[in-house]
Design a binder for these strands. Structure first.
Length: 160
DNA sequence: AACGAAAACAACCGCTCGCGT
DNA sequence: AACGCGAGCGGTTGTTTTCGT
């Protein structure tokens, strides 16, 4: 059986990571870095595919990650960035340096989308669904949306 | 106290893109 | 120029935790 394992074929582990696996991956990357995800698992003594290792590192083990609850400010930033960029989670995460795309995506899908919907904002367009002009909250978000449009225009103009 | 439903969180999958050959 | 391979991305599914009955 001297054939190089092609990701799916051989007995590669899937599912949740154990503390043991985390330690191995962390230790390896701290010592050698991650030049080559494909080759990494066997070097690090892990029965995982490189993809799985990369994901685990990027979303959990990387040192520059802030874990835990999102602050109110982060909420607003994410909402604004989503208005600007749409579902480009990696782009959004790049502007929230301590958060991962996966975490932001999950947070958006489970919390923010619903919250916006409840407030009468369409989470896709970020526009108010009803034009309740007397409602302060709706005004706030209309204003926010307006600001987002400006930022979007500026980004477009400055791109290059 | 026990069970089922819903939410929150973690990880996987398929696809595309970019790079090297 | 075409192809193959690996990395990264976004959508989706699976698993754990919390909540309501």
């Amino acid at each position: 059986m001297g054939r190089a394992p092609c990701c799916d074929k051989m007995g590669l582990k899937k599912g949740p990571w154990t503390p043991e696996e985390d330690r191995k991956l962390l230790a390896y990357i701290q010592q050698y870095g991650h030049g080559n995800w494909h080759a990494l698992p066997s070097k690090a003594g892990l029965r995982r595919c490189g993809k799985s290792c990369r994901l685990r590192w990027a979303n959990y083990l990387r040192p520059d990650i802030k874990r835990g609850k999102f602050s109110l400010q982060e909420d607003e930033t994410i909402i604004q960035l989503h208005a600007l960029l749409g579902n480009r989670w990696s782009a959004i995460a790049a502007l929230l340096p301590k958060r991962t795309d996966n975490e932001i995506k999950n947070y958006w899908n489970t919390h923010l989308k619903k919250r916006l919907t409840k407030m009468g904002i369409d989470p896709m367009t970020h526009k108010p669904k009803n034009h309740a002009l007397g409602c302060d909250q709706a005004k706030d978000f209309a204003n926010l949306w307006h600001m987002a449009q400006w930022e979007s225009a500026r980004l477009e103009a400055g791109r290059g």
